[in-house]
Every structure is written in C-alpha cells, then in structure tokens.
C-alpha cells in the first residue's frame, strides 16, 4: 500500500517562465496537507505533476519508490480533482453531472457510488444539469464529490472551496474530517481561504515563486511565529537577531513578524508587545511584498 509520495528536484519550464524551480517534497500517508501560495506561485502546476497529469521538465515524482508518470499502479492511488471548467473546446461544457460522475466511476478503480450518490443528495445537485449551467459553487461541489468518492489513497483538491458559501464550506470541512477519520486517506488541499482551513491542516506547505518556502507541522510552525511591535529601536534589535518579515513602520513604532528557528526563543528583556500570529498573517508576512 502507498506510503510516501516523493518529489525530487521538480523543474517545470513553460515558454517564457519557470513555474517550478527545483522543488523537492515528501508527502506521507495519512495526513491532511494544506498547500498555500499566491496566485501564480506554482501550486496547481506542482499538484498536476505530483498526480502524473503533467510531466516535469526535469525531476521525478515517485510513489513508494515507483515513478508515477504513466504508471497505472501509482495513478490508481492518486486523485487530483481540479476545478471544473464550464467551457470546453467546443464552447459551453455540455457534459451532464451524471455523465461526469459516470466517467469518474469508469476511471477510478475504488469509486464509491453510494458515497457519490449521498453527496449529490446532501449538496442538492441536479445531476441532469449540464456543467456549463452550474454556478461556481455547484462546480466546486461536484469537484468535491469526485474527490471524496474516488477513495484514492492520495487525494488532491485544488481550491475546493472556491465559490462555496460559508455553510457549504463548513459542510465540506466536516465531510473531509469524517472521511479522514474513517479511512486515514491522505489529502492535499490547496486553498486561498487560509484561516478557515488552517485547523484542518496537519502540515502546511507554502509555495512561493516556484519554490517550497516551507513545509512543516502547522502547530509547530505557529508556535515559532509571532508578531512583535514596539519602539523602532527595540524592533530593529530584534530584526537583526531573528528572521523578520513584513516590517511595518508606524510613526515612531515598528512592527514585524518574527519566525524563530526551532528551539529559539526571544529574550525576555525585550520591551515589545508579542502576539501569536495566525497562519494567514504569517503567510502574508512571508509571501507578501515588503
């Protein structure tokens, strides 16, 4: 059974841009990973390569030591549920929801029809409706249904909550946790709605500008990230000592987000206000422009 999905030195080059610049990443079985990054950071490209839907320019992706590209044994254990496009090559996407679910049942070897049917009912989706006629939220729901009902060991969801209202998002998070608790499947979720999903993520992966900025246990990461504010001189002292991001000047005061190294602690003599920082604010500090 699948245990480790490993990416080694993944480079993906398009005509005018390097989308990924030597990414190495290991995903272990039985965790919920959150992948966050700015638009154009390379998240979808990386997820596409990890799921053998795109070929890297160089580097390799292995599942339990076997390369995933064109490897049916590996592909059977990976599901990458992408955002559905209401447009197709011929114009509006006229595939019906029930046809799409039928296609999914043909291709996914562990497809759970019962679960798919119950999710369709739960989300109140009209399966006779065409993809082009679905709202953005409904498209997200169909994506979620395919991901959950695929029962793939490694299930990747690319912005699954885009377009969902807050009630539907809470439903999704609950469904995900229930499925995770029942099956122990590995989920990789990329999202821009960081604050809501942060509690779900056992590990967070931050992608920035084609590189993995960090990959760490969420709680451990947040335990070493703080926002400090105080007089400019005191903050400047801290900036020189520790890894500081997103420095803000507020008149004679200053603020910054400090990311301590593991085991590092701030000296108690510093006369500054120290506050824990949320994952979202940490992400903005790390990836936002100064």
């Amino acid at each position: 059974m699948s245990n480790i999905l490993e990416c080694k030195d993944i480079v993906k080059r398009f005509k005018d841009k390097d989308a990924l610049k030597g990414v190495s990443l290991t995903l272990e079985k039985g965790k919920i990973y959150g992948m966050i990054g700015r638009n154009g950071a390379g998240k979808t490209t990386l997820l596409s390569i990890m799921s053998a839907q795109s070929k890297p320019t160089s580097g390799s992706v292995n599942l339990d030591g076997e390369e995933v590209w064109e490897n049916q044994k590996c592909i059977d254990n990976i599901c990458f549920s992408r955002e559905l496009n209401p447009l197709s090559t011929f114009g509006p996407n006229n595939v019906k929801v029930k046809e799409l679910l039928r296609m999914a049942s043909i291709y996914y070897p562990y497809w759970d029809k019962k679960m798919a049917d119950s999710l369709v009912k739960k989300f109140d989706i009209n399966i006779k409706q065409r993809i082009s006629k679905l709202s953005k939220g409904m498209l997200s729901m169909v994506t979620i249904i395919i991901a959950l009902a695929s029962k793939s060991e490694f299930t990747i969801l690319d912005e699954p909550v885009a377009g969902l209202d807050v009630v539907a998002r809470e439903q999704f998070y609950k469904l995900l946790l229930d499925e995770y608790n029942e099956t122990g499947r590995t989920f990789v979720i990329s999202t821009h709605i960081i604050e809501e999903a942060a509690d779900l993520f056992e590990e967070v992966i931050i992608v920035n500008n084609g590189n993995i900025l960090l990959k760490e246990n969420t709680m451990d990461l947040l335990e070493r990230a703080y926002h400090v504010s105080g007089s400019a001189d005191d903050i400047n002292t801290l900036i020189e000592k520790y890894e500081a991001h997103h420095v803000e000047n507020m008149g004679r005061s200053k603020g910054a987000t400090i990311l301590f190294k593991k085991g590092e602690r701030m000296e108690s003599s510093q006369d500054v206000m120290v506050q824990p920082v949320s994952l979202q604010n940490l992400f903005v500090a790390l990836c936002g422009k100064e």
């Binding site: 799921s51 059977d76 990458f80 296609m103």
Partner: peptide, 16 residues
C-alpha cells in the same frame, strides 16, 4: 481528442 482533457484529469494514462 476533444475529451482528452477530461479523460486525463480523471486519471487515465495517455498511452491507454
């Protein structure tokens, strides 16, 4: 061929 995007997205190998 027009359906290849959806087929590959659902996990088919290109060869198949």
């Amino acid at each position: 061929t027009a359906y290849q995007k959806i087929i590959l997205t659902l996990g088919s190998r290109r060869k198949d």
